[in-house]
Amino acid sequence: MGTWTWFHKLSSPPHFYRIAGKMIPWFAIPAALLMAYGLYAGLVLAPADYQQGDAFRIIYVHAPAAWLSLMCYSVMAVAAAVGLVWRIKLAHALAAATAPIGASFAFLCLATGSIWGRPMWGTWWTWDARLTSQLILLFLYLGYMALRSAYDDLGKADRASAVLAVVGIVNVPIIHFSVTWWNSLHQGSTVLRKGGPAMPPSMLIPLIACFFGFTFLYAALACVRVRAEVLRRERNAHWLKDLTAPRLGAQ
C-alpha cells in the first residue's frame, strides 16, 4: 500500500477511530514502565546534587512537565495550521485533544518550579523572562480552550481557536531561548545544551526515562481524547452504528 493511500485511509474517521484505539496500549504501557522507573530512580537511585541536595529531585517532574507543555503546544499549533490550510477535521480534533493535556503540564511545570524556587532561589515567583513566558504559555492554552467553548458550532470553534493556536507559537522559541537571550534567574537547559547534558549518567538516565515516559503518556492520552473529538464531529455518521450496535442491542 502506498503512503498516500495509507494516509487517506488513516484520515477517514472510522479507520482513524479504530487505529487510535489500537495504539493506546502501545503508548500507555511504555509510558507506565518508563515513568515508574524514571520517577522511582529519580527519588531513590539518583545521587543528591552537591549544591542543592535532595531538592534537585524535583527536576524529575519539573523538567519533563516543561518539555511536555512545549511539545504539546507545538503539536497543537501544527495540527491547527494543517486544519486551517487543508480543512482536515482530524487535525482540528488533534489540536483540541492536545490543549487540555498541554495546559495541565504547563500548570505542573509552573507549580513544581515555584516549589523548587522557594528553597533554592529564595522566592516562589519572580518576573524573569523564563517564568513570565511560561506563564503566558499556560494562558495561551486556557485562552484556546475558552475560545473553543465560546462557540456552539464545532467548525467555527475549530477555525477560530486554530488561529489563536498558530499565532501563539511565537511564544515557544521565546520560552526555550529566554534564558540565553536575556539574563534571568532561571538557569539554562541541562539536557539540551551545547557540549552535552550537564549531568552524570546516574542522574541523567532516570531523567531521560521520565522525558520519554511523559511523551508516551501524552501519546496515549491524545489517542483517547482524539477519539472523543472524532465522535463529537461524527455524531450522525452511520459508521457509528457498527460501533455502538452491540451496546444498543444490550439495552
Binding site: G53, D54, I58, V61, A65, L108, I115, L217
Partner: peptide
C-alpha cells in the same frame, strides 16, 4: 529528603494529581 521533604513530596504529589 535532607530537609527538603516538604518541597520534594509536594512536587511529586502534584505530579501524581496531574497524571
Amino acid at each position: 529528603m535532607g530537609g527538603y521533604g516538604a518541597y520534594v513530596w509536594t512536587s511529586y504529589g502534584l505530579a501524581a494529581i496531574v497524571l
